[in-house]
Computed example of a mutant assay.
Amino acid sequence: MMDNIIIGQYLPGKSFVHSLDPRAKITAVVLFMVFIFISRDPFVLSMAVVLTVAAFLAAGIPPRFFWKGIRVILLIVLLTFTLHLFMTREGDVWLDLGWLTIYSGGVIEGGLIALRLLLLIVLATMLTLTTTPVDLTDGMERLMSPLERVRVPTHELALMMSIALRFIPTLLGETQKIIKAQTARGASFSQGSIWKRLNALIPVLIPLFAQSFKRAEDLAIAMEARGYAGGEGRTKFRQLAWRKRDTLILVLFSAFGAFSITTRIL
């Protein structure tokens, strides 16, 4: 199942979303993330669903490929909904079994949070699928460039975030290999109580951490061997180009944000 996780991967393509400037895509995702958590209006959330579906269609990502990669993450959304369902005690009682009481407030709050998380995960996943790691780094660095006036190492921060995203599928692949190796040696990860399953993960985590540190050290040595010394004085071979379509996307998401704030105030 871990082989299907697509967070941090890039899917080559020539769609409308692929051709957007990374600064526009990153800004749009951030605006979307902020504004969907501001408003509770059903119409605003419906607009957010429409925007997400439109972005998915414009990205040209195969639905089956996307579903295989995101279904594991849906467990987090389901867990979030379940926690709100059982822990929120507001509104009318919808179900009372003595040991289990479900309130209308729990269903509403759980549904709202689950929907927001789902939309955010879908849009953020599309960002990584339609943007190369190099473009992500350049886009984040350009967006954070005003912070250089207060001596914030924007280049290094953008590089670290890009490397972290890039290493997600690599670490998942390493985890899968270790699990298969441990299973071949008689380890069981799907039988027994939950404590036995957690204890069975210890032989997986130790070599995984060892491999992670080794990869980090190899990457650091490779960067030093190529003369990397931070962002100071560096020039760029590839220049980002802002076009009308990027402005259109920002105007669209800004209008959505303004409407979200208006419904929140009124």
Rank of each mutant, 00 (worst) to 15 (best):
L252F: 09
L159G: 09
D41I: 05
K196E: 15
T82G: 11
G257D: 05
M1N: 14
Q182C: 08
L51M: 14
V134R: 12
T130M: 00
N4R: 15
L127T: 01
V77L: 11
R64I: 11
E217Q: 15
D21S: 06
T154R: 02
P153D: 09
D246E: 04
W94G: 13
I194N: 09
W94F: 12
A225Q: 03
E232Q: 13
Y10S: 09
L248I: 10
S162N: 01
L75T: 13
M1L: 14
D135P: 03
T132Q: 08
L112D: 10
K25D: 07
R151F: 13
P133L: 03
V122S: 09
R215A: 13
A164W: 04
T27Q: 06
S15P: 06
R23S: 09
K14H: 14
V49W: 03
T80G: 14
Q211K: 10
T131H: 01
G13H: 05
W94T: 09
D218H: 12
L165Q: 06
S188G: 07
V49K: 00
I261S: 09
V30G: 06
K236Q: 13
V29C: 12
G231E: 02
T82F: 14
V72P: 07
I61D: 00
M160H: 05
E90G: 10
W67E: 03
S145N: 08
Y10Q: 06
A216E: 08
P203L: 04
V34P: 05
V152F: 15
L79V: 15
W242C: 05
R149T: 11
K177R: 15
S39R: 01
L100R: 05
L119I: 07
L205C: 07
R142D: 11
L129V: 01
R234K: 14
A187V: 11
R185V: 04
E217N: 13
A55S: 12
T52C: 14
E141T: 06
F253D: 00
R197D: 04
L123R: 00
G106C: 01
R234M: 08
V150S: 10
P133A: 08
I163W: 05
I202P: 01
T130H: 00
T82V: 14
L74T: 10
V34Q: 09
I265C: 08
K177H: 11
A114R: 01
F256K: 00
R264W: 15
K214R: 15
